[in-house]
Nucleic acid binder design. Structure first.
Length: 460
RNA sequence: GGCGACAUAGCCAAGCGGUAAGGCAGAGGUUUGCAAAACCUUCAUCCCCCGGUUCAAAUCCGGGUGUCGCCUCCA
């Protein structure tokens, strides 16, 4: 399979370090707030990467960090008037909750920065001893000039950067591109003891520590949003090179940004949505479909009309399952016959995770499953394959009807009212039967007259 | 100033040298008392513009135009 490697700016054949195994690391959230819908794209995409490798029989080790000490957390703590650790705990919990609701499979390891503090300090210390880092007034900086590879990931030449860039003047740095490894604590800020006095780590060291701890010195894939290429990943990589001379990861994958109505999402533009609020409005599966319907490296525009369109498109799959009564036949053995669809699906996914193309295969299968011209066993086989392949993308996690918040009495009453309507229809009293239908609709109960009789669903 | 991405039907979106996938919407039909749902059929002579390479280009090259991103915390 081919993966676009940010390092080489081209698609490369993916060769894992150990055949059959994939060591995957993706940057997780900084827990200073509920994560937003743009974060959700990244989390969801790497969830699909993980699922697809597993689908193809690879043994995946997936690590995602949680940054629970950071300037933004401190700022939020001041704003909420609670200790920083409470902010971190609150939003870590919220993250785990929302991730689950989004249908993300839990990573194998989810280490937190504060849980590896001694290791981070040891890393910085090692960098200092080998001359790649220097202390200045309680802060420690990484000397970017000390390694030749600096800039290789992001393609930036440090000297050329400085001309027009808005680099804050920091006289403690030897070089404007040098980045903070350790930050001296100001009064009242969270602090840890270190060889350089009390302080906290910079952002870029934790991922180096955690990834190497769980995945080894060099691992297969490191991922995150494009904005992390520089400086975060460049700086992670620099530390790894300084430490061992070896790359941190062989493949760097970066998902594109999410825009709102063509504009960047930001709090100042007031177009900021948390995943939590979107999940309150739309099904997790709809959000998943929305993201996967476009290639992961392209920017994606988010707006409600597009989400609604995704919801309509997704109905095709559920209609397909319904048409063969898949819940009843789910456990029956599939007769096969749709191996070519699986081949097509795999080809699409093998080409740098072309989920949009893979989804087209799913629609073909849905079409087959619904086709009244095909014999039922064949339709069921198509539905089985649809379920199988959709699962590789994380779809159809709950095929069952969503639990309706209705008690037995209500249910009986609705059925009673319907029975009166059936009588009215038998008498061709259309005025009354339509009124009953309209009135129930106003209450959120949708009636449908089908060949099998009148069925009802509750509008969600 | 430096680096990079993208421009395909009303909308979303694949395609990456061999003659335009798929979805939404629309149109027509089947079904229906009507409605909804469902199913079937249909829907780009053409891929931002101008040159070039080639037997052949949406796909490659050069030049424009436009949109967006990164270089500062950020998925």
């Amino acid at each position: 399979m081919k993966i676009y490697n940010t390092m080489s700016r081209s698609k490369e054949e993916f060769v894992p370090i150990k055949p059959g195994k994939v060591k995957l690391y993706a940057c997780g959230p900084t827990v200073y707030n509920y994560f937003h819908i743009g974060n959700a794209r990244a989390f969801l995409f790497f969830d699909v990467v993980r699922r697809y490798f597993e689908f193809r029989g690879m043994e995946v080790t997936y690590v995602q960090n949680i940054t629970d000490i950071d300037d933004k957390i401190i700022a939020q703590a001041i704003e909420e008037g609670i200790p920083f650790s409470e902010v971190a705990a609150k939003y870590t919990f919220a993250f785990l909750e929302d991730a689950k609701r989004l249908g993300l499979k839990a990573p194998h390891f989810q280490p937190r920065a504060t849980g590896v503090m001694p290791e981070i300090i040891a890393l910085i210390h090692a960098l200092q001893k080998s001359g790649h880092a220097y202390e200045a007034d309680g802060d420690v900086y990484f000397a970017t000039a000390s390694i030749s590879q600096y800039g290789s990931l992001s393609g930036k030449k440090v000297e050329e950067q400085l001309a027009g860039a808005r680099v804050a003047e920091n006289t403690k740095k030897r070089n404007a591109a040098d980045f903070t490894l350790w930050k001296r604590a100001k009064a009242g800020e969270p602090e840890w003891d270190s060889p350089w006095g009390k302080g906290r780590p910079g952002w870029h060291s934790e991922c180096v520590v955690m990834s190497r701890q769980y995945l080894g010195e060099t691992f297969d894939i490191h991922g995150g949003g494009v904005d992390l290429v520089f400086p975060h990943h460049e700086n992670e990589q620099a530390q790894a090179y300084a430490l061992t001379g070896k790359p941190l990861a062989n493949y760097w994958m970066h998902n594109g940004f999410l825009n709102i109505e063509g504009e960047k999402m930001s709090k100042s533009l007031n177009n900021f949505f948390t995943a939590r609020e979107i999940l309150a409005e739309y099904d997790a599966e709809v959000i998943r479909f929305f993201f996967l319907s476009k290639h992961y490296r392209s920017p994606i525009d988010f707006n409600r009309e597009l989400i609604a369109e995704s919801a309509r498109a997704l109905k095709n799959f559920h209609a397909a399952f319904k048409s063969v009564d898949f819940l009843q036949v789910q456990d029956s053995p599939s007769i096969g016959g749709y191996e070519s669809a699986e081949r097509e699906f795999n080809e699409a996914m093998d080409d740098d995770f072309n989920t949009a193309k893979a989804i087209a295969v799913l629609f073909e299968l849905a079409h087959q499953a619904k086709s009244a011209e095909l014999p039922m066993p064949e339709r069921i086989a198509a539905a089985h394959m649809l379920y199988h392949l959709g699962g590789a993308l994380g779809f159809f996690q709950s095929l069952e009807e969503p639990a309706q918040d209705i008690n037995h009495l209500t249910e009986d009453l609705i059925n009673l009212i319907i029975s009166y309507r059936v009588s009215a229809r038998t008498e061709k009293n259309w005025a009354l039967s339509d009124k009953i239908r309209d009135d129930l609709k106003a209450l959120g109960v949708i009636l449908s007259d089908t060949k099998e009789g009148c069925t009802w669903t509750v509008e969600t």
